[in-house]
Every structure is written in structure tokens, then in C-alpha cells.
Design a protein around this nucleic acid. Structure first.
Lengths: 185, 185
DNA sequence: AGATAAACAGACAGACTTGTCTGTAAAGAT
DNA sequence: ATCTTTACAGACAAGTCTGTCTGTTTATCT
């Protein structure tokens, strides 16, 4: 019987619900019901729904940073790294019912005054761009060309997530993976 | 003094607001206020908010079909067609305060039971994919290869819109355009 | 002029939302 | 044993939302 503290239960439950139905599609009442906590407990740990969202994005971002570092340290050739990344993306999307990128989805419903959320989205996106640039740098000697190819991989990755969500299918990810392999091969 | 009928005013106002702040971020009361109509008039023309959204998506889709046909009939070489398309996308995003793709943004907040909306999003995305495949077919003789490159252009296009929105900048579109030119050149 | 259609104004219902508040129960620490 | 922290339960405020309703005004057509 897992019984972590209330904060962790809230964060985990909110993460699942936010991912599945979007930040604006889930209310606090549902979160605390499913997490089995009282509303007062919620507001003891999070000053607002927005700050809960920030904690969720931050947690995913931390995990993403770990994964990027792990992949870059794996010793694989860059082409295989990119292929592994896209294969994992395909698994992730399929497992999550093609809900796409949580950051982009959250960004689509948060206006400019949610500056904490917007900041985290931008942070994560820039860090993912940087990850792809690092991969490209290992495959391409010309520095400027490597940066351009890295950005290209990043754009392909984003489009693959987005269209897999819209079309509820996997081919955009496969297309992006093939393109990435060609660009790095 | 333009004074179209109430339905047109509602549709135009809703279009601007949906685009700017997202489908779920705009209420009917605001729409009818800004359109200068009564609520009863709204429900005389649209049975629900969802059907208003469908009318909006349909209208944009029709315009998009026209633009695609016009571009394909322009007599430009395929590489220039794609370049023109991405340049226009950049203008569109900049003019609209980097709000990204209305279809993807709407898809991010509509669940599966909004089946009319989901259908239109899928329709539009498939039609855009088809547009890129047609461009690729004119530049690449091998049929299978052309289809694959067309899909790649489509994924680049989607990623460019999405990341231009997230990062509030234009470089993803420029990256996608350069990649498209390379793929077709 | 009289009939018909369309748009007007706006109250209202019912169900949601976030966030605050009061009070209670169960732990662990000194 | 008492004190403090943490969590529980849930009512409540104040506002939002969509959609329905009654009734009035304006315009067009015959």
C-alpha cells in the first residue's frame, strides 16, 4: 500500500490528469478527490492551481534533463541516439493515448500573465533544442552547420509530437525519425 | 459602416477571440458582447458553442484549401512554392502575436466527445499533408520518395508553428523553410 | 397597413470554477 | 502527557460558464 504524503499524491494525480485532459480541463476538486486529500491540505502545499502546474512542469523537466544526459553519455553514435530518442517518443505517445507534448498543450491554454508557466515551457523547449544541437555537433564537424541541423531535429521532433496528437497515429514520429537519421547519417 | 447580419458578426468576432485566446479561453458572453448581438440571436444561428467552433474551423479550412490550390497553380517551381508558404506562415504568426496553429491549439483542449471538432482538425491536417505531398511530387520523380519528403515537409511545418508559439520567435519557421528548400532543391 | 421574420435586451437556472474558512482527528516529539 | 505538525472533512463565497426563457423592437415583404 503506497501512502506517500499528501503533497506527493497531489502532484502525481495532477500530473496524470493534466497530461490526459490538459491544464484547463481539470479542476482542483477532481484532483483532490482522486488524490484522496482535503482541499485545505492542497492549499497548504500549493498556493494556487497555477503553482501546482509549475511544480508538475518542473518535475517533468528535471526528468527530461536526466534522460538527455544519460543518452548523451551512452556512447552511442549520434545517429542511433536520435533514433532511440524518437523510438522512445513513439512509445511514450502510444502509451499516453497520443496526448502529445504536455508543454505545448499547456502553452496553448495559458495566457501571458501565467508567466511562471510560460517561463518553464520556454526553459524546457530551449533545453530540448540544446540537446538536439549537442547530438548534431557530434555528427557534423562544421559548427554552424551542426547548429542548423540540431535546430532542424528539434523542429521535426516538435511537429512529430503535435501531429501524432492531432491525427492519433504514429507515422509523424516515424517520418521525423527517418529524417533525423538521414540528417545525421 | 459595415453592418453584416448577426451570424457573420458572431463568426468573425469569435474567430478573432478563439484565435487569440483559444477555444476554451473565450466565453459566449464575451463573444456576443464584442459582436454586439443578443444571446438569443446567437442561439438562433448556432445550437451550441461547439458548433460555432466547427463553423470557424470550417471557414478557415475553406480558405486554406483555396490558398493551396492557388499556390499549386502559380507556376512556381516547387522549391519556391514551399519557400513562399513558409514565408507566409512567418508573416501570419508574427501578425497574430505568435499564437500558432488554431487547429492544433483547439485540439489541445477538446476531448474525444467533441467529435465534430476533432473531425475537422483531422480533415484539415490531412489536407495540409496532401498539399505538401503534391509539392514534393513535382520536385521528386520517385513516387515513394516524394511522399516521404512531403510528409517531412508537413512535420517541419507543424513543428515550426508550434515552437514559434512556444518560444514567441520566428527562427523555427526559418529553420523549417531552409530545410524544405534543401529537401526540394 | 398589416403580417412575418429577425434581432434586440436581459433575467434566470443550474452547474461548474478557484480559493477561504472553521473545526476535528491523528500522528510524532519533547 | 502535552504540544505541534499534518492531514482530514466539508461548508461557503464569489465568480464563471452554457444554455433557456420572456418580451420588445426593428425591418422587410405583400
Amino acid at each position: 500500500m503506497k501512502k506517500p504524503n499528501a503533497r506527493d499524491r497531489i502532484l502525481e494525480t495532477a500530473g496524470e490528469l493534466f497530461f490526459q485532459r490538459g491544464y484547463s480541463g481539470v479542476g482542483i476538486n477532481e484532483i483532490i478527490d482522486k488524490a484522496g486529500t482535503a482541499k485545505a491540505s492542497f492549499y497548504q502545499h500549493f498556493p494556487s492551481k497555477e503553482s501546482l502546474c509549475e511544480a508538475w512542469l518542473q518535475e517533468m523537466h528535471d526528468r527530461s534533463i536526466d534522460y538527455h544526459a544519460q543518452l548523451l553519455d551512452s556512447g552511442m553514435p549520434p545517429r542511433d541516439m536520435a533514433a532511440a530518442y524518437f523510438t522512445r517518443l513513439a512509445d511514450f505517445l502510444q502509451a499516453g493515448d497520443f496526448r502529445g507534448c504536455p508543454y505545448s498543450n499547456t502553452g496553448a491554454v495559458s495566457d501571458e500573465n501565467c508567466c511562471g508557466i510560460v517561463r518553464l515551457i520556454r526553459l524546457h523547449k530551449e533545453s530540448t533544442r540544446d540537446f538536439f544541437r549537442r547530438i548534431a555537433t557530434r555528427a557534423i564537424s562544421d559548427e554552424a552547420r551542426a547548429a542548423a541541423i540540431g535546430d532542424r531535429l528539434f523542429v521535426l521532433y516538435s511537429g512529430a509530437s503535435s501531429e501524432a496528437q492531432n491525427l492519433k497515429c504514429l507515422w509523424p514520429v516515424e517520418v521525423a525519425r527517418d529524417a533525423a537519421v538521414e540528417l545525421l547519417g
